[in-house]
Each structure stands twice: as structure tokens, then as C-alpha cells.
Amino acid sequence: MPLSTLDPSAYEVVRLASRADLSADRAADLQAAGERVDSWRDVLLVAAHHRVLPLLYAHLQPWAPQNVQDELHSYVRRRAMSVLFLNAEMARIARSFDGAGVRFLTFKGPALAEAYGGTARRPFVDNDLLIDPADFDVAARLLGELGFQTRPRSPFQRAGYLRVNGEYTFGRTAGPLISTVDLHTRLVPVGYPYHGPFDALYRRSRMLHLAGETVPTFAWDDLYLALAVNALKDQWNRLRLATDLAETARFVPDWAALEERARQTRCLRALHMAVLVSTDAVGAEYPARVMAAARADARAAQLADRVLRRLPLAHAEPVMEGRDRIRFTLLAPDGVRGQLQYLAYVGLRRVVEPLVSVEGDTA
């Protein structure tokens, strides 16, 4: 069955389940939505696209059909094994990097799992590390010594690929388990407004405990801002982006400081979009002043409305194409400078990517 013809109740069940914890009212709404479902297979397909299957499992019991519970339980068990392996891998990498004096920050997966209250509700599939660009060659060598491999490129190709994408992917296998590391030299590609100077992010970092090691990760406000811009980069194509922001928002200590940092790095509109989408999509809560500022940003409100109308169909059309993508992203930066920066990035990709791509790369 084409995804576009799925049970219309499926998205509402998935949306209501997309929080780490549910209020009594939200739980009641979820059960009522579940009682209207004609096809639980459709619910599972939509939840898989939005990457919230663990949350669906946590909140559907005990009233969901037993076969649905069993399938979700099997999925959650498999993901738990993978996460344990990835945490052990992160500990190995941390020891190697620390021994060589390479500073790094882990973000996304383990840090977000903490916001959700544990990896059972927010598993992840890889480890993302941000490093100082000057340390890339050393970090790549250390990963190679740990058994990680990457697609071979010439020094010219690698420099060009990093310039365009700001990250490099390494991987290794251990039996049935796969360990992937996305090694970032910047948080987002060059066309997007937030670049987060590594030294400043590192100074503000906090410590995360996993697999017997203590590793540095983003401060909560830096993580929120990184997620807001990453959601823009990914065109807000799944609900979990909104859930990540909603759960992280609960730990932001100083919204005024965060807004000022967003203003300085020209991503205040991305922040406003994050506030609006996460509130309306998954019930995030923000200080009244933060909500008022977001709603007063007319363009952010326009873009957020477009995202909210698109999310129920994202399982069928996960990626904006061509001009729609460019038009959407051009409206998001703060000011003309940000728009020109994105246009330059689009041109740079068209020129550089054919020169740096190797077999196995995807567009």
C-alpha cells in the first residue's frame, strides 16, 4: 500500500505518543486516538518514519493489540543491544582521543538519551563527535587504529568534502553489530547559520557518564540551538526532531542567554521555528516571554505553519525537492547575509561535489 494512503488516524497516534512522558490528558487522548485506528500496521510504519517506535512502545501498553506490543518489544530489545555496543565504542574512542590530547564533544545520541530519561526511549544508531578542525587528521588516524574505516579519498577530495559537508563518516563492524562515527568539524554545512566555534562550545560543555567513562558533551542551551538548526537542515522531516527539542528545552537554564547567542550567530529565526513547531506538534512548554517572541516573528510563524501542515504527510514525502527546498531554506536565515550564505553554499555544492564524490556516496 502506498504510504500516502495510510490510515489517517495513524499519524495522530504517533504524534500523541511522541514524548518521553505523557500527562494524564495526553495519555487519555492517545488511547482515544488508538481506539479509532483501523490499521495498526500503518501506525507502525508512520512511527518508524518519525523514529519514535520506542516511545510508541512505552505509551501504548497495555491497551494496544498484543501483536503490536510484541513487535515493538522485539524492536526495542534489538535497539538496546546496539546502544550498549555504541556506548562501549564511545568509551573506547574517548580513551584514545584523551590519550592523544584530542578534544571532542559528543552530541545528539547519548546527550539526548539523557534528556529522555534513558536510551530505552531514545536509542540512537551512531556516535556524533565534534572536534576542532585542526585535529581532524589526528582524529581520523586514531579512529583507523581502533578499526574504523572510511571511503578513500585523495587529500584534495577529503578537504573539499569537509569544506562542503563539515563531517566525515567512519564505520566498523563487530559480528552483527555496526559502529558508525560521524566526525564533525562543524555542526552544520557551510550554508547554514549556526557554526558554533568549537572552543566556545568546549568551554561551556558538561560531562556525561556512559560505559564507565566521563565524556564531554554540549551544554543544554548549546544542544537546543544545534538541534534547532539541524531540524532546519533536515527540512523538519520527522516528528522526533520536535520531540528532541521539547525534551531538551526542559533543561535549558537561561533562555535570555540562549536567545542572545542565537542572535549573535544569526539563527534566531531557526530558534523561533523550533519553539513554535515543538509546541504545536508535541506539546513542548516554554516561558511565556519565549513563546511571545517566537509568535511575533511573522516569518518564523509562516515557516512553522508550513512544517506543521507537512508533518502528517512526511512519511510519504520525506524530502523537499529542488526549488521548494531552496525556497524554504532561504526564508529561514536571519537577514540577507544568511540568505546569500545559503545561496553560495548551493552553488558550492554543485561545483565541488562532483569533484570530491567517490563510489558509494549518495546525493
Rank of each mutant, 00 (worst) to 15 (best):
A100T: 09
G118T: 12
R153S: 08
G160K: 13
G196V: 02
P193M: 02
L177A: 10
A113W: 00
G99Y: 14
V188A: 06
P176W: 12
T119L: 01
R103D: 13
T173L: 14
S154P: 14
A115F: 08
L183Y: 01
R121P: 06
G175R: 15
V190I: 03
R163W: 11
F136Q: 10
V102E: 07
A134T: 04
G175N: 11
A134L: 08
F107D: 04
I131D: 05
G171I: 01
V164E: 12
P123L: 12
L187N: 00
A100V: 06
G166T: 05
N127W: 02
F124A: 07
P123I: 09
A139M: 06
G144R: 13
V164R: 06
V190M: 04
T185P: 05
F170S: 01
G144Y: 08
F104A: 03
L112H: 04
A134M: 05
R163D: 13
G166A: 05
L112P: 00
A139N: 06
V181C: 04
P193V: 04
L129M: 12
G109Y: 01
V188Q: 14
P110I: 11
N165A: 09
Y168H: 06
S154N: 15
G171V: 01
F156C: 15
F136M: 10
A100D: 15
